[in-house]
Design a protein around this nucleic acid. Structure first.
Length: 130
DNA sequence: AACCTGACGTTGG
DNA sequence: CCCAACGCCAGGT
């Protein structure tokens, strides 16, 4: 029976809450999750929490990827394929093995580069809806 | 306590 | 592009 530090419960809950709020069709890095959870620099903790999290069907764990746009699991591993499969189902597909954070990143809204290279389809759709 | 290993990220060479 | 070195810190040995 693994014991969990009592004081860490809110921390874990906060991280899980942030992950749960990642919109479908988007991805966020471990570091970004940590920041949004008020824990800057604690990217690894996000990984620990996910690893320790029981299979929760309502948790979009597949939307969490590394900052370099690659899936954290080893290529050709079961989990890796599963994650890409889930992402593909939401329209998120890697290009040359990496997911383009410019297009699919949760931060796209105030991505300055988007101002230079043009808004992504997702951003256009968002603006059109407003 | 000491050391190792990660579902990480950044920087520098 | 690859690699090493840190910074980070929870868990396992």
């Amino acid at each position: 029976m693994k014991s969990v530090d009592h004081a860490s419960i809110p921390v874990h809950a906060g991280i899980l809450r942030v992950i749960a709020s990642i919109p479908s069709g988007c991805v966020a890095s471990y570091g970004e999750i940590a920041e949004r959870a008020g824990l800057p620099g604690r990217a690894r903790l996000v990984g620990h929490v996910l690893r320790a999290t029981p299979g929760n069907p309502s948790l979009p764990w597949h939307r969490v990827i590394r900052a370099d746009g690659r899936v954290a699991f080893p290529v050709d591993s079961r989990a890796h394929r599963e994650q890409l499969r889930r992402l593909a189902r939401e329209g998120v597909r890697p290009t040359a093995g990496r997911i383009d954070m410019r297009r699919f990143g949760w931060q796209r809204d105030f991505d300055l580069d988007a101002q230079l290279w043009g808004p992504s389809p997702r951003v256009r759709a968002t603006h059109a809806a407003q």
